[in-house]
Design a binder for these strands. Sequence first.
DNA 1: GTAGGGTTAG
Length: 456
Amino acid sequence: MVCKLSTRLMNICVASFCKVQQLERAEAVIVDAIRLGTLPDVVTYNTLVAAYCRFVDLDAGYSILNRMTEAGIYPNVITYNSLIAGASNRSLLSRCFELFDEMIMLGITPDVWSYNTLMHCFFKLKKLDEADKVFDDILMSKLSPCSTTFNTIFNGLCKNGHANNALKLYRYYKKNGFIPQLITYNILIDGLCKSGRLRAARWVLKELGESNLEPNASTYTTVMKYCFRSGQFEEGMEVFYEMKNKGYTYDAFSYCTVSSAFAKIGRLEEAHKCYELMVEKGIELDIVCYNILVNMYCIGGRLEEVYNLLNEIEQAGLKCDEYTHTTLIDGLCRAGNIDGALKHLRYMDTLGFDSNLVAYNCMVDRLCKAGYINKALKIFGTMDVRDCITYTSLVHNLCKERRFFTASKVLLACLNQGMKVFRPTQRVVLKGLRSSGLDSEARKLQAKIRLARILQ
DNA sequence: GTAGGGTTAG
């Protein structure tokens, strides 16, 4: 009984240190406990696995699994769920599946948490059918889906551009007894805002207002961002102040949202002030905060300082991501250094990011605007992946140069891919073709546009 | 031990 109590006490101490990222002290507690005759149990090791996955890396978490096995303690479903979650959070998605299989091979039965995380992974990989199969597996097994299962589905649908379906499903489950939580509302409001379903987003927000739940910092940041995106700057700032009045302390999320909104409308001093406040409040800067600062300097043409900042990022032990590089490429173009931007784009290609699409889109647009439209067309020709922004940008710039025939060809290629170009741009192409006497090309394009609208 | 908000381009 005494031993049991001391194991519990040891685990409480270990968990407390792990929670505040003091892993060495957590380990020291275990060493002391062993010296006093208390051995760590599965709970101790699971706490360490979760902490190492969270604060160090997946391999560090996995090495704890080896340590516990050597100590004769067998992992359980919680051990593996922590490892799977660790892999998922670090976007090591193939590792998630490997760990899931490993768990089953060891005879450990997955629980609803394991399935939820697995489903989340499939959504991250945009494999909606596979995610759906996991949900079927939950239903077919003796497990019951929990609120996180439903929230994971809503979130996965929203993140994959199906906010509408998420909303429909939410209504259906709500009718059948699902009780929404604050996180459910936050997921739906954000998803609907991002997909432009603003009326529906307001409706869900109203539903939240009528519920007994109180919006939190996450809700406020989402709504604030929607205001900024739709050009309602003052309204966005009102949300920011309301958030403070409600007693929420600003965090990196809210500061970043406001700072980038200021930068976007050219109020760089105020944008920088937000950043300074963030530092003053002791908020640890992550790569997103730095990216906003990089963008701020790029907009202000302070390229020298951007390079200093890149060093600072490295010194802080952070890694530049695709946002950092894309922002820098755009900044170089903005400063007229097209060659430097092209060179950096090539360099970015070697870094192995999942997608350099935005960087390429920046390059295409900036090349056009700098008068190098043929160079832009050449880059466009080398792109493996294009989206509606690539096409819209190129078509728009070709029209500005009165190259309507080429614009029409690019637009047709876009429609053939099942993508849309901004409607006013489509009209400019048609008008331009007709005014240039290219009536048959105009008719062909018009027919294609109509067909594309029907097929939408 | 799972799920939500912040950064880039038209």
